[in-house]
Amino acid sequence: MMTNKRFIRMSTALLILIVLMSGCTHGQRSETIVIPSTEENHTSDQGSRSFQVKTIYRLPASVTDNDEMLGWSAPDTVIGLFKIVRSSERMKRNLQRISIPYENLTNVQNVDINTHSLELSPDGKYISGITKTQDGDSLTVISLSDGQHKEVARFNSREQLLVQKLSWSSDSRYLSYLFTDSNSRQESLGIYDTDADITKDYHLTGFENTGNITSVKISDDGRSMLFTMVQSSRKSSVVLGIINGSEVDVQYEHQTGGEQIAWLNNEQFVYLGTEGTLYEYDRRNSELSVLLENVERFEFSQNRKYIAYSLNEKDSIFAGKLQGKNILYEEPVYHGINPSQMLWSPDNNSLLVNGEKIYSRLSRTPMVASPSDHQPFIIKFQ
C-alpha cells in the first residue's frame, strides 16, 4: 500500500514537471498554482450568502405615520419621536425606544416643543436638534445616555439664520449644518467636531449658480461634503464640495433624480441619477460607474457592504451586497410596500421600513405579516 501511494505522488510530481516544461516552449512565463486544502474548501463565507428573511416584526398599532422614526440606538432597539396626547394638556412629543420583540414603547426623555429637526447620530448615542428662542435659533446635541444638552452653536436672528439642514457623518464624529447671513444672504457651512468639541464655519464659494441647497452629507474625514441642489427649473443636481482653507469649493456636479446621496468612503459616493440610475463616483480617477438601473429608493448599511432598495413600478424591497462595482444577489425580501424610509441596524442584520402598503402586482401568493398602511415594521435577516 505504501508503495502505491509513493508511486502516485511521484507520478503526480512528474506530470506537473512535464506541464511546466512544456510551457517554456511558448515563451517565458511565471505562474502560481494554488491548491486549497480540504479545510479551506469547506470554510463558509458569511458575506457571500444571499439574504434570507428570518422574522418580520410589526411595530405596535400606536405607532402611526404621524410619528417620526429617527433610527437605531442599538442593534435591536429603535428610537423615535412620538406624539402623546395628555388629558387637559396639549399634545406633547416624547423620545421613546422600542426593543425586540418590538411590542412596548419606553420613554427616553421629553422633548421641548420648541425643538425640531431632530437627527439621530448613526451610532445611536446623540440627537441633534434646533431650538427656537426669542433671540434666534440654537443648535443642540443631546446625549441619550445621560440626557445632557450641549449647545454647539447659537444664531442671532438679526445677523444669521440657521437653515434646517442637519446631517451627521456616518461615523458620528461630525455634525454639519447650513446658515445664511441675514443681510448679504451669503450661505455658510458649519461643522461641529464631537471629538475635539470644536465648531468651525466655512463660506460656500461657487454655489451662486447651482441652485438652492436641499441637503448636505459630510464625509467621515470632515473634509468633503455632498450637496443636493434644486434649480429654478426644478432640476436637481449633486455637488461635491471640498474644504479649502476657510471656504468650501465646488469640485464636481451632476444632474440627479432627487436628494438620495450616500458616501461609501472618503473618496467614493453614490447618488440616484435621472430615470432611476444609481451611480457611483470615484473622485480619485473621476470614474463614474452604474450600480443599478430603475431604482426608486436606496439605503446602504452602516458598514457600506449591503444595500436595500426598491425599483420603479415594482412593489418589492430588495437587498444585495456591494462588491466592487456590482450588486450581488439582489434578493426580494418583502412584497407589497412602497417604502419611504429604510434604515439598517448597526449590526447590519435588520432593516427598519416605513412606507405605504400596496397590493403586490408581481406575485399571486398572499403576503405574510404585512403591516397596515404607513405602519413601520422591521425585517430581521438570518
Rank of each mutant, 00 (worst) to 15 (best):
R93G: 05
K92N: 01
Y279R: 11
T199K: 04
Y202G: 00
S99V: 00
D347L: 11
T194V: 05
G273P: 01
L14D: 06
S87D: 09
E296G: 04
L70C: 04
I242D: 01
L311I: 11
N294H: 11
S340T: 13
S87Y: 07
D282P: 07
L204R: 13
I327Q: 15
Q231M: 09
T256A: 08
V53A: 02
Y192C: 09
D76I: 15
F7Y: 03
L226C: 13
E356H: 03
R86M: 01
L292Q: 15
V53K: 02
Q323K: 05
P332S: 04
I130M: 00
Y57R: 08
P60Y: 12
E40V: 08
D146L: 00
S172I: 13
R49S: 13
K325G: 06
T228N: 07
D76Y: 12
N107D: 11
G71E: 02
L328R: 12
N107K: 09
Q52Y: 13
T228C: 06
T274V: 09
G124Y: 14
E275S: 15
L292S: 15
S117G: 04
D315F: 02
R29W: 00
T365W: 04
Y202P: 04
R97S: 03
S30G: 04
K125Q: 15
L14N: 01
N326W: 09
Q186P: 09
K380L: 12
R173K: 08
N349F: 00
G273L: 04
N209R: 06
R234V: 01
W344D: 04
R361M: 14
N94R: 02
Q52C: 08
P75I: 11
D197C: 00
K305L: 08
V53H: 00
Q160I: 11
Y177I: 12
L144H: 03
I16K: 11
N312K: 12
N266L: 13
S138M: 13
D65F: 03
D181E: 04
S143E: 05
D45P: 01
Y306P: 10
V163C: 00
C24F: 09
L362E: 14
S289H: 05
V248Q: 02
G124P: 15
Q341W: 03
E119W: 02
D112G: 10
T64P: 11
L20R: 05
N104D: 08
T43D: 15
D135V: 15
V368D: 13
E356D: 00
Y174A: 12
S363Q: 12
S48F: 10
L278R: 04
V239K: 06
Q148L: 02
Y177C: 05
A153R: 10
Y102H: 08
D195I: 08
L15K: 10
T38M: 03
R9D: 09
Y279V: 08
Y271H: 05
N338V: 14
S176A: 14
F300M: 09
S232G: 06
L161T: 10
F227W: 08
T12S: 14
D373H: 15
I18C: 09
S22L: 06
M367W: 01
